[in-house]
Design a protein around this nucleic acid. Structure first.
Lengths: 204, 204
DNA sequence: GGATAACCATACGCAGGCGTATTGACGGGC
DNA sequence: GCCCGTCAATACGCCTGCGTATGGTTATCC
């Protein structure tokens, strides 16, 4: 209406400093945009016309790249699943002393914020049939990882599995309680203390 | 269309065995129906025409009882908040030995299923602005309760608060992971073992 | 420097869901 | 026995959001 799409340059030359001025989009651009929108406003807010406005085009563009809105969600979710985690877990595994891994892992996850935004949003969208399998796979992988860590730290197999589930449940629950519910706006020091408490009671 | 509303009797006499044949509805009936629908299909599925079909009437009835769909949701949520918990927590508090309370509490909550359905559904609907305050209040109350229990069991105030948060987070996360995500369909014995593990690592 | 492919705008159709208006049927109090 | 309050059916308008059709614009390839 009032915000006529300002197109600035097409396919900016490589040597030019990329001041993200292009307006000609690829499928990946749409997927990234979708993930950003999901992180900010939840899966329910992922509408093609809204996303198009956000990207400065109209949906005429969208339907060139994707057959349907569902296809976009699918692609975005797969993209997220692909590029998630990996690094952190790999680095943790590289620590020799198994019992030293948990403090490091907990502190690590506790202090990165951005990646959790999407995860929290997806947690709130577990009604949606498309996100369930993705979250299922991701959770399973992470629990498997934790189980292995606990086993290597000396817990017998069954205990290791239970402890892993407990740990991961605590993680998920924490996200729910603090990200989406804003439970009493915990302070920074208090949060650190909480993490340390968690480390103390959860490492074998 | 094909399911013409079968009306059976109006205001069945008191002495008659209540075989829920009435079709004349009250606001409470709508609220209960809403909660049932939420438990089964989530908050997003709460649509007035759908609910009306479910109750065997049309929405013409609905708008006599409620001004808007939003009002129904609000009423249903308040009703749920009102009639929730209470009993369990009170009974737990009656156990003299503080450290014996946790096993009882955990086993207790672990084995009731139905009340968790609504809670799990609400957890998935934390996008919705109307459910956030309700969940906030409920969670806060429960965490307060846990904090008191832990304090009475000998933890110093700060530790008690942290332990309470951890416990409640584990609870919430467990609901997410198992109810809505159907993580690998845990068996009955395994579940009991998990609960016992939780008791062991979480009671001071 | 045209032709072709990639990308986008505009206009439209269509379905679902909310809310309103109007009318109808039943029932209890006077 | 009538009347009014309560509950319900039907029909309608509206808005949102998806998907389609069609044609226009830009980039690339020869």
């Amino acid at each position: 209406m009032d915000c006529k799409p300002r197109r600035l340059r097409y396919h900016a030359p490589m040597n030019e400093g990329a001041k993200n001025e292009r307006v000609r989009l690829s499928a990946e651009d749409w997927e990234d945009g979708a993930l950003a929108l999901i992180a900010e406003q939840g899966v329910g807010a992922l509408a093609v016309e809204a996303l198009a406005r956000r990207l400065g085009v109209t949906k005429g563009s969208f339907y060139w790249h994707f057959r349907t809105r569902e296809a976009l969600l699918q692609a975005a979710l797969e993209r997220w699943e692909e590029y998630g985690e990996r690094e952190v877990l790999a680095e943790i595994e590289r620590i020799p002393d198994p019992r030293k891994r948990f403090p490091e892992l907990f502190r690590r996850v506790a202090h990165e914020v951005q990646p959790h935004r999407v995860y929290a949003a997806l947690l709130k969208a577990l009604d949606h049939p498309q996100v369930v399998p993705v979250m299922g796979r991701v959770s399973q992988r992470r629990i498997d990882f934790l189980t292995r860590m606990y086993a290597e730290a000396g817990l017998e197999p069954v205990s290791a599995l239970h402890r892993a589930r407990l740990t991961y449940a605590a993680y998920v629950g924490f996200l729910q309680l603090n990200f989406t519910l804003g439970l009493p706006r915990i302070s920074h020091e208090e949060f650190d203390a909480y993490v340390e408490h968690m480390i103390a009671t959860l490492t074998p």
